[in-house]
């Protein structure tokens, strides 16, 4: 009988001690905000395009933290999905085509300024305030701030906004990776075609 009492009391005391420790830890090491959502948000491309169905990257990151699928971000594409899958420890899924396709390269909005009527609709649509202008004044895109999200294209009543690929200059040009040698290409039986260093004449 006494052994039972001792066992129960010891367990109770232990439970109390650990409960106190846990309670203390919960207060002492409280994490502000939603750390998972913040980490997810850090991986999203921040185009704020809303193609995922959420009004911006942060809301989508919060939704992902709450169990939303990770394959709804076309600007991020496969690499973002992979990074999210790595972070969350889930299987990467192919990009959900419903939300749009991944673009080939970075884009930037361009306003054909001669056609702009100064309606400010695009200014209101831009999620990152990258369009400047005033009512009845021509607007223009701050290219450095534009995320290429497309959101300004649709509201324009005169269709004077177009998305252009970001141009390559000597400032952002860099060498392509050498083509992999023949040992990596299963169908390649001609060694000479595999050598990018030859025959590539400008």
């Amino acid at each position: 009988m006494s052994t039972v009492v001792i066992a129960v009391s010891v367990l109770a005391v232990l439970a109390l001690i650990f409960g106190a420790v846990l309670g203390f830890a919960a207060v002492r090491f409280r994490v502000e905000g939603n750390p998972i959502a913040d980490q997810v948000n850090a991986l999203l491309p921040q185009t704020q395009c809303g193609q995922c169905g959420y009004p911006g990257c942060k809301p989508y990151s919060e939704a992902i933290a709450n169990g939303e699928k990770i394959n709804k971000c076309p600007p991020g594409g496969e690499s973002t999905i992979q990074a999210l899958a790595d972070l969350l420890g889930v299987e990467p899924e192919p990009l959900d085509a419903e939300h749009g396709a991944e673009k080939a390269g970075p884009m930037v909005a361009f306003i054909r300024e001669a056609e702009c009527i100064g309606c400010t609709k695009c200014i209101q649509a831009c999620p990152v305030d990258a369009i400047i202008g005033a009512a009845k004044q021509m607007h223009t895109v701050v290219a450095a701030e534009c995320t290429g999200c497309d959101l300004c294209v649709e509201p324009c009543p005169v269709d004077c906004i177009e998305m252009r690929p970001v141009e390559t200059s000597t400032a952002n040009w860099f060498w392509q990776a050498p083509q992999q040698g023949p040992q990596m290409i299963a169908t390649d039986s001609r060694p000479h075609a595999a050598n990018d260093n030859k025959g590539e004449a400008a």
Binding site: Q46, Q48, G56, K58, D129
Partner: peptide
């Protein structure tokens, strides 16, 4: 960096 900037601008706007 650009994404960070965009995020900041988006949050400020909001």
């Amino acid at each position: 960096k650009k994404a960070e900037q965009a995020r900041e601008r988006f949050e400020r706007r909001q």
